[in-house]
């Protein structure tokens, strides 16, 4: 973290969406009723040395931070779309999550839709892009140790499955419930 701002999520795509040209289309698409927010998040580390060194400014200066505490480095749908793990190549979405999601108008997907296909769906083929973020969260959990991801695989599956079946995830210990959009926001919060 070399500066106190970090570019991350955008509403209708994600940080790793490919070329700036595509983003330009999204931003310019005033005609389409598609809201786009590209957020540069303020990361004001408190305390004295707020600007911990990072790769580009300070070569390979690394601070004395305790090596064991790595932050959670979940990866976004855009990342997984471009580097999809071989072993999940033709795994079906419904086999992992016990059901399918819907397209922009609420029409359920084909039953044999694969995880990889979901990542390539456009806005109107994956309502709220909930499917894409469910796949990303699942893959992050499968690589939990390497990524320091804070959720186990079955936690992710349980959350997604509840949304697919009753449209809402209800957390047992707190009673808090989240709809598909809120679950997507939560998953997005776990990406680096």
């Amino acid at each position: 973290m070399a500066n106190d701002m970090d570019k991350n999520t955008e509403l209708m795509g994600d940080k790793h969406s490919p070329q700036p040209a595509r983003r330009k289309f999204l931003i310019k698409s005033a005609a389409a009723s598609v809201p786009v927010i590209l957020t540069v998040t303020s990361r004001p580390a408190m305390g004295g040395n707020f600007c911990t060194p990072s790769g580009f400014l300070s070569g390979n200066l690394s601070d004395h931070g305790d090596d064991h505490d790595r932050s959670c480095n979940g990866l976004s749908p855009g990342y997984w779309k471009h580097s999809f793990p071989k072993q999940f190549e033709d795994v079906r979405f419904s086999r992992v999550f016990g059901g399918v999601w819907v397209d922009g108008r609420g029409v359920p997907w084909e039953p044999d839709t694969t995880l990889k296909q979901v990542l390539h769906f456009r806005g109107n083929e994956d309502r709220y892009r909930f499917g894409a973020h469910a796949v990303a969260a699942y893959l992050n959990a499968e690589h939990r140790i390497r990524l320091h991801y804070p959720m186990e695989v079955d936690t992710v599956i349980d959350i997604v499955r509840q949304v697919l079946t009753v449209g809402m995830y209800t957390d047992p210990s707190t009673g808090l419930s989240m709809d598909a959009m809120e679950v997507k926001e939560f998953f997005e919060g776990t990406y680096h």
Partner: peptide, 15 residues
């Protein structure tokens, strides 16, 4: 801890 988790706070101490 769970409510904070659902709002984006994660435990750092992985050890």
């Amino acid at each position: 801890e769970q409510a904070l988790f659902l709002h984006g706070w994660f435990s750092e101490k992985q050890d």
